[in-house]
Design a protein around this nucleic acid. Sequence first.
DNA 1: CGATACCTGAGT
DNA 2: ACTCAGGTATCG
Length: 294
Amino acid sequence: MPELPEVETVRRTLVPHLVGRRIRTVSVPHAHVLGGASPRAFASALRGRRIGGLSRRGKYLVLDLEADGGGEPTHLVVHLRMTGRLAFVPAGAPFTPDPRHTHAWMGLSGGGRLTFHDVRKFGRLGWVGHADLAGALPSGRDPVLEGVDGPVLLRLLGTRRAPLKSLLLRQDLLCGLGNIYANEALHRAGLHPLCAGAGLDQAAADGLAAAIGGVLAEALAFQGTTLWDYRTGDGERGGFGRFLRVYGRAGLPCRACGTPVEALRVAGRTSAFCPRCQPAAAGRRRPPVAVDAG
DNA sequence: CGATACCTGAGT
DNA sequence: ACTCAGGTATCG
Ligand SMILES: [Zn+2]
């Protein structure tokens, strides 16, 4: 469910509820969310700690927990995978955990709760000491934290023979893009998903960098894309779905030119593309013109 | 590299 | 009964 704009939205919506609060209680009724780690160790690593801030890298969300007594700072690391949800339940609001899908929650000072819900059970919670945080996060460049431009993309992608679509999904090159925004960025850049990384020239790389930055910024402004499960930290839906130009639109008109969108399978994922805006392989192409949602 | 496994639910 | 879904770790 969540790619960079969704995870960043969850981060932003949780900040006002969590920062400065202390974790009082930790409940993990379904230990699978810890990926084999001990619920008792998890609870004792978190209990009593003050949440100093929330950060994000790629699709990972991190709660920064301040040093407690003599301890070192610790980080609660969350990955929502496909259907995970983190939500804040305010003090006094009814809290009714779904016995099947609410896998963990924390009671906070002030009476609120942070809950983790996940239908498909791919999502994970973990904790690491400060020294190990970087190693727990994706190594690729985060296009929002660090920016991307044409030269960076040429360096990262320009020597590889794999299809651009596969490369954009690799979190060790760029982190944060998933299937929705990889498809949308390629469409905005006028690049076919099967175009090789090495097929990029300077102009195409500039265009792709602008497309990535643009689609992420726009999606963020609408609090991300809710197709099914994704919700912000306040339980709201993201509103960017109506602006998607090709993702999920196979057989429907491209939102830039009206040509029917086609679908391909690349690296096990569906790639939606417009045959007119993104003509066959090869490199550079002029970007399609943006159009309002219909 | 791509394919497969991990899970559940929704839709056909 | 079968296909598909926002992701990624692990396999060959
Ligand atoms: Zn088009």
